[in-house]
Design a protein around this nucleic acid. Structure first.
Lengths: 128, 128
DNA sequence: TTTGGCTGTTTACATTCGTAATCATTGCAA
DNA sequence: TTGCAATGATTACGAATGTAAACAGCCAAA
């Protein structure tokens, strides 16, 4: 069912990159998060600290003190985030219906044969 | 195959609302666009004019003079926009694979039975 | 011919976002 | 004990966005 911390605030793309790191493993310090993303995104530690703060004030992350620094852990769950972002897209672009999205992906050839097979299997299982 | 005006610039959500109106029917004047969205989004005509200008400078709309006003028509195609936005989401949230997105929608119960039936039919047709 | 509306253009202004630099505190090494 | 290094907090600042108001040009009605 997935939980719900009241994360009404919207999470930006840069913030999302930080969330991904913490979803993968948490809790972590700011420095540890930086180790994971700073090279890839060409960020400085300062940037990471800013993003962490913003995520804390948006209630997407919780902190626990560890000596004189913080350990950060997600409050917002990855599944919930995926759900809300997916829903936003479907609402905005496909009138709220998911089927047209899949149709579109199919037409746009964004689906490989493997994807198609996989999705069919998924749907079959769903109905069972 | 869908065409390609070089619309590199990102289109914001408010701008997208304007695009939808013009995708539905074009060309239209600023006033006509306003008729369609101003109530719904609680915008003034001034806002619509700003958005139209920004879309023109982003190469998403073309104008043709009609007397002393402009008629606006889309350059960016709806299908292309949907494709790029969908791809963005899939890349950002699902590692670039569409199947996990569908799986997620299914798990999140964002798919109705009708959706599932419809998607199955679509996929079946695709393979044919 | 004057003037009132429309039109597009220019300017405005508060928020959010991306990306940091600086500041203040504090525990640890010398 | 004292100064440095690490860490969170505060401040910064330009670009994009949402949302408009002000302005300038011009056609049509009076």
């Amino acid at each position: 069912m997935s939980s719900n911390a009241d994360t009404n605030e919207r999470i930006s793309e840069a913030e999302h990159a930080v969330m991904e790191v913490l979803w993968e493993k948490s809790p972590r310090t700011a420095a540890e998060v930086c180790e994971e993303v700073c090279q890839r995104r060409d960020w400085s530690i300062a940037t990471v600290k800013t993003l962490l703060s913003r995520l804390v004030s948006k209630n997407a992350l919780a902190t626990e003190p560890d000596g004189r620094r913080f350990l950060y852990r997600p409050l917002l769950e990855r599944g919930d985030y995926r759900t809300s972002e997916s829903r936003r897209l479907v609402d905005r672009l496909f009138g709220g219906r998911a089927a047209p999205l899949v149709a579109h992906l199919a037409e746009a050839e964004a689906l490989t044969d493997d994807d198609i097979a996989e999705i069919e299997k998924l749907l079959k299982e769903m109905k069972a």
